[in-house]
């Protein structure tokens, strides 16, 4: 992995240090430290309620930390010029498509609002990106007419349009069947190939995490349990990590015997 990257290379690196977040009296993140290299697919895994989504919101500046910092290429995440300087996209768990806009308008929203291209060119780009995610000809549909998987693919197309340097995925395969989950996983890898963007994926889907990650951070109870390549994480002997990785369904009789 190339660690010495610059803005010109179209990729960015992320550095999280001493990140803490409390909501009232409950501390959700209890001191998180890690660095994400330029252009890698970094997967944050952990059980539900472990603080993954809260961590992701800090990585894009939607939440302010109680303590610690998040830096993108050395710039504090809450610095006002950051989103103007870097193209950062996020694919939300629900897709977060604007329900009052059609699929085409949603995908072209970034280009239209920032007046990056003339309308005809925006329409062409929208058609192209929708075709990439397998939704050609869906421009006129409304988000309510789409299934969960289609909404996520539209959200990916909306991120693609931005030609992002950093892209964040929040639970990209939740509520999806295994076939669509595989398709979404492939889309994440293809997105990296196309844009060379640094990708951060938050998930509790072990198949997805180990299938696409360059490195994985496993968090639980607001702390990082282990961080490394998929093989290193598999080899980790931390009991909590083993429990998470080995959890599988057992028929009731078998579970009783064990």
């Amino acid at each position: 992995m190339n660690e010495s990257c610059t803005v010109e290379s179209g990729r960015v690196c992320v550095e999280v240090s001493g990140l803490r977040k409390s909501f009232g009296t409950s501390e959700i993140l209890k001191g998180i430290d890690f660095g994400i290299r330029c252009g890698e697919i970094f997967v944050i895994m952990g059980p539900s309620g472990s603080g993954k989504s809260v961590l992701l919101k800090h990585l894009i500046g939607l939440e302010r930390p109680t303590a610690g910092s998040v830096r993108i290429d050395g710039h504090e995440i809450d610095s006002p010029e950051l989103l103007s300087k870097y193209r950062i996209a996020m694919v939300f768990q629900s897709g977060a498509l604007l329900s009052s806009l059609s699929v085409g308008e949603n995908v072209g929203l970034y280009l239209r609002e920032h007046r990056i291209h003339p309308p005809a060119e925006i329409n062409r780009i929208v058609r192209e990106k929708l075709a990439i995610v397998g939704l050609a000809g869906s421009e006129e549909k409304m988000p309510t007419e789409l299934s969960g998987g289609m909404k996520k693919r539209v959200a990916i197309a909306r991120a693609l349009v931005m030609d992002p340097q950093l892209i964040l995925y929040d639970e990209p395969t939740s509520e999806l069947d295994p076939l669509i989950s595989v398709t979404i996983g492939q889309e994440i890898v293809k997105m990296r190939e196309r844009t060379h963007a640094t990708s951060i994926v938050v998930t509790h889907d072990r198949d997805l995490g180990f299938g696409i990650a360059d490195r994985i951070a496993l968090i639980s109870g607001g702390r990082i349990l282990t961080l490394g390549t998929p093989d290193e994480v598999r080899a980790c002997d931390n009991p909590e990590v083993r429990t998470f990785l080995n959890a599988s369904y057992q028929p009731p009789e078998e579970a009783d015997r064990t």
Partner: peptide
């Protein structure tokens, strides 16, 4: 109601991430 449902369903967060 309209803006509230946009806030609840993360549409406003999506706007912010697009620097809108």
């Amino acid at each position: 109601a309209e803006i509230g449902s946009m806030a609840v369903y993360q549409e406003i967060d999506a706007l912010r991430t697009m620097n809108i």
